[in-house]
Amino acid sequence: MSLQDRLTELRDQGLADIKSADVLKKVNQVKVDLLGKKGPITEVLRGMRDLTPEERPKVGAYANEVRDKLQTAIDHRREELEQAAVNKQLAAEKIDVTLPGRDVPQGQPHVITQIITELEDLFIGMGYQIVDGDEVEEDYYNFERLNLPKDHPARDMQDTFYITKDVLLRTQTSADQPRSLENHDFSKGPLKVLSPGRVYRRDTDDATHSHQFHQIEGLVVDKHITMADLKGTLTLVANTLFGDQFEVRLRPSYFPFTEPSVEADVTCFNCNGKGCAVCKQTGWIEVLGAGMVHPRVLEMSGIDPEVYGGFAFGLGPDRFAMLKYGVDDIRNFYLNDVRFLSQFYKKG
């Protein structure tokens, strides 16, 4: 048998062995057996010294070719087997990805806080300061300085928890307004404040009344603030809370601390103004009270109403939340039933 034939035979046998090796170990054994220092190919190469100088390069080249071919086949087979082993392991590791993920405990803000935060951010963006007044206030600031002297009939609108004759639980966060007004330095620019917070009324708790609830009051005073500015601001509030497609309409109302005074209605978000149970078929929902700051309120804070003027508005986040989410009982906000609280998770 010529050396070439011997090489061909070794090649074919080797390729067959590689192919049939079904574990890595066998592949490695084939490699050692065929290509090792004591292997048959090495032996063939040793036999080349008996060849003629013409034949030697030919056989040498052929021997290299066979060796490369076998090496390639071994590498290839090894990869195949490694891949198969990985595949086998992956198959064994398969899990049901639809099983629930592990809970990472995550709390969430109260729905009232969500609404207050949203409005705070809106007004901070428009250059307002946030003011936190005291919840226990003097009658003088809560009422008298807002043009509500004792025995004013409008006081009937707000039944009050008194601590003493002159100290009460604030019935409105606008109790902060006289303090803001008297403390503001108008040489540094306009006064723009938003006062969110808890307020209290002497009401028996039921589905629509709560002795504790929240208010957000806004106040802007400058040399030229118009009722049109008020309308534009309220439209922005409504659009932020309910969406851009909603309209705001103003209608006359009465608050002792504003003149003119208005109530603002927003297109019913539930029926888009067509009329439904939520809006009592009117297509509109009353959402806030507002007006131009009463000259007396400015005067009492030492501000000249001939030079300065402004607007004020107030709204109830509890009422907003009830409207927006269809909450039918205001007590839900203060019972802190986790089944209730956990429903409002969409906003931070």
């Binding site: 901070i124 250059g127 802007v220 400058d222 030229h224 049109a228 309308k231 534009g232 922005l236």
Partner: peptide, 12 residues
Amino acid sequence: PATLPTGQPTIG
């Protein structure tokens, strides 16, 4: 009309 207050800007 519906407008927004103008005048000296303030930082919120």
